[in-house]
């Protein structure tokens, strides 16, 4: 019983770390830009697809290709921002919300449809295996543990970036108070580009990890984005800590629900927690008031 409990917990921690890395970009770009990017999950899907192609055709280890995919994501994010998002930023809040939903939904549809057209509609995972080891009756899956180490390392690096470097602190400052950030001389336009690109890069890089564990398919993006939205709202928008708390809560409840209640109820839990969290603390568990 205890070992089962632990087994599920290990899975939940890994899933939570993946949720954190995937969702934190969405959270930061909402914090800084007040833009709801519905195509976020599609970049995760694209990242996973690139990782898959890199392993199958070039034989590149997913842990290496994840870095490359993240760099590509950085560039794509900058281009995406310049082409589309920059034209939406600066409208009134309600206008921005509605037009960003519309535009990024359009982007999501284009990405999903083009991917399924060029690649075929099937689902696939990255065929990459590592050895498992057993300690005291608990199976520690090798691949999952390595991934866990990778995601924790990345989360920690991201934390250092946000708290120690100038640009990272500028991102946090713009997220807390945009006008205040402008007043103290932060180039919020540049900060916006960087935030958005980093978000896309993280999503794409996480996609490679995601695809080594689960299968990806062209039309998974939107559903994933919505789950990420639930994750970051539960934790509180605009911070790494918020994404982490939300990610682990959702992952843990999902894992235990699907084990003890039934897998068909798991998709619902994220939204149940979301609604409860919103009613108890509308600004998120760790969020600041408006």
């Amino acid at each position: 019983m205890v070992s089962v409990f632990l087994q599920v917990l290990i899975g939940a921690i890994l899933q939570g770390a993946l949720y954190t890395l995937g969702a934190v970009g969405l959270s930061l770009s909402f914090g800084v830009l007040k833009i709801l990017n519905l195509s976020h999950g599609d970049f995760l899907m694209l990242g996973g697809l690139l990782g898959f192609l890199a392993l199958v055709h070039l034989g590149i280890n997913p842990f290496i290709s994840a870095a490359g995919v993240a760099v590509i994501g950085l560039l794509v994010g900058a281009v995406f921002y310049r082409l589309l998002i920059a034209r939406i930023v600066g409208r009134s809040f309600r206008q921005m919300l509605i037009t960003s939903v519309m535009t990024t939904l359009g982007v999501a549809l284009v990405i999903e449809d083009l991917t399924s057209f060029l690649w075929g509609g099937g689902s696939t995972g990255i065929p990459f295996q590592m050895r498992d080891f057993v300690v005291g009756g608990v199976v520690f899956p090798g691949l999952r543990l390595t991934l866990l180490a990778g995601t924790i390392f990345l989360t920690f690096a991201l934390h250092l970036f946000l708290s120690r470097t100038f640009i990272g602190r500028a991102i946090v400052a713009s997220s807390v108070n945009r006008v205040g950030a402008i007043v103290v001389g932060i180039n919020t336009e540049f900060v916006a580009v960087v935030t958005f690109s980093i978000g896309i890069a993280l999503a794409a890089g996480t996609g490679v990890f995601y695809a080594t564990l689960y299968s990806i398919e062209p039309f998974m993006g939107l559903a994933l984005t919505l789950k990420y939205l639930a994750v970051i709202i539960i934790g509180g928008m605009g911070s790494l800590m918020g994404a982490m708390v939300g990610g682990f809560i959702v992952a843990a409840v999902e894992a235990y629900t699907s084990y003890f209640v039934g897998a068909e109820w798991a998709p619902m839990t994220a939204f149940v927690i979301l609604i409860i969290a919103l009613l108890v603390r509308p600004q998120g568990l760790l969020g600041r008031g408006e």
């Binding site: 007040k34 309600r94 919505l226 939205l229 609604i275 919103l278 009613l279 509308p282």
Partner: peptide, 27 residues
């Protein structure tokens, strides 16, 4: 309960309710 929320939070919570209904309908 929903109208305790505003802006993007309201929008996402309403979507959450829709997803709840979808899962309920399939389960």
């Amino acid at each position: 309960p929903l109208f305790r929320l505003r802006g993007a939070y309201f929008a996402i919570a309403t979507f959450g309710i829709l997803k709840l209904m979808e899962v309920l309908a399939s389960n």
